[in-house]
């Protein structure tokens, strides 16, 4: 777990490819959508989630057990990947996995803000990022937002949070703090990437993700018609929007849909955009962006077999699996029919 030395993609790729083989396929998903929460937990116990289900089984039950086991497994697998990688490979993977750090920081801040119980916050954390257990414990023990900011002083979130804290004190809303965390993450994500061909493809993938995030945000704002400055939610680094064009387009839904349809993503997102116009549903669009990213990730993994891209491809597939199983379990809990749950899944 270090950024020194030469990178070792061969080793990590071999391990990750083996793990990829044990991800759930169409067949398993079809079975899962026909099970109740308890059966899903038992099914998971017999697969790669066994250790996690057993470790948490005594404390939780039902859908909560599934959810926490998924989070725990995800965190463990991604921690393993970071453990194995060395050198520039570590840096490239850590860039992406830092999003879990950002998620944890936001969760803790929200928890402190709403006076949530420490153990309640703890189960929602996904310990997959770069923060070690000691820092996470200190984060959990923080009893005020000021203390949270202090714990993060020496990380990349330190300075932006300190600045945002002043604004938070004035307005007493979490938006400036959360924006500061997101922006710190995205700034680090795309800065100083190397120039090797696999890295360029990785960068193209990251840019596409930023673009989709911007597009989804803009669509949400345009539909809600709320009087919020879209520029405040703009994330730097994408190719599709600039701060000004996003601010202009977010005011007009039709123009925005047309703009996305004409862009380089038009082919992949076209059907979802038409559905958005007809059914007025954002869910289809969000699924389409997820599916497009996943398909791109799959393609990434095959062009340069010994580089960072197959690893990223696995990370994406794993994340998607966890989200799919969660959707199934939550859908079952809410009593949705199997075919409706199936339409919520993103499977390539």
């Amino acid at each position: 777990m270090s950024a020194v030395g030469s990178s070792n993609p061969e080793y990590v790729v071999a391990r990750v490819r083996a793990r990829r083989g044990s991800l759930y396929g169409d067949e398993e998903y079809r079975k899962l959508t026909r099970m109740g929460p308890a059966e899903i937990a038992r099914f998971m116990e017999e697969s790669s989630y066994g250790a996690d289900i057993n470790a948490l089984g005594s404390r939780h039950g039902g859908v909560d057990l599934i959810e926490y086991a998924l989070n725990r497994n995800l965190a463990e697998q991604f921690d393993d990947i970071l453990d194995w990688s060395e050198g520039s490979l570590y840096d490239l993977i850590a860039r992406y996995l830092r999003k879990f750090d950002a998620w944890n920081v936001k969760t803790v801040i929200r928890g402190v803000y709403t006076d949530a119980d420490q153990s309640a916050i703890e189960v929602d954390l996904i310990r997959a990022g770069e923060f070690d257990d000691r820092r996470i414990r200190r984060l959990l023990e923080a009893d005020s937002i000021d203390a949270v900011v202090e714990v993060l002083e020496d990380t990349i979130y330190g300075d932006p949070l300190r600045e945002a804290y002043a604004e938070y004190e004035e307005t007493d809303t979490l938006v400036p703090l959360e924006n500061a965390v997101d922006r710190a993450f995205y700034e680090r994500l795309l800065s100083g990437l190397g120039n090797a061909e696999p890295t360029r493809q990785y960068e193209a993938f990251l840019r596409a993700e930023v673009d989709f995030r911007n597009a989804t945000n803009a669509l949400r704002l345009a539909r809600s018609g709320a009087d919020i400055d879209p520029a405040a939610y703009f994330i730097e680094g994408g190719e599709l929007f600039t701060r000004d064009s996003l601010a202009r387009l977010a005011r007009n839904l039709d123009e925005l849909v047309e703009y996305i349809g004409d862009s380089q993503y038009g082919e992949e997102l076209g059907p979802a955009l038409r559905e958005l116009e007809e059914a007025d549903s954002l869910i289809a669009f969000e699924h389409a962006t997820d599916a497009a990213l996943l398909a791109y990730g799959d393609r990434l993994g095959t062009i340069h077999p010994v580089s960072v891209t197959p690893i990223i491809s696995y990370i994406l597939a794993k994340e998607r699996e966890v989200e799919n199983i969660r959707a199934i379990a939550r859908g079952k809990e809410a009593g949705l029919p199997a075919d409706q749950i199936e339409s919520e899944l993103v499977i390539t």
Binding site: N8, E10, Y11, V12, V13, A14, R15, R17, A18, R19, W84, V306
Partner: peptide, 14 residues
Amino acid sequence: RGIGSAAVGAMAED
């Protein structure tokens, strides 16, 4: 060197 580290990685899984 490359094949060996990949082989050890694969063996660690299976």
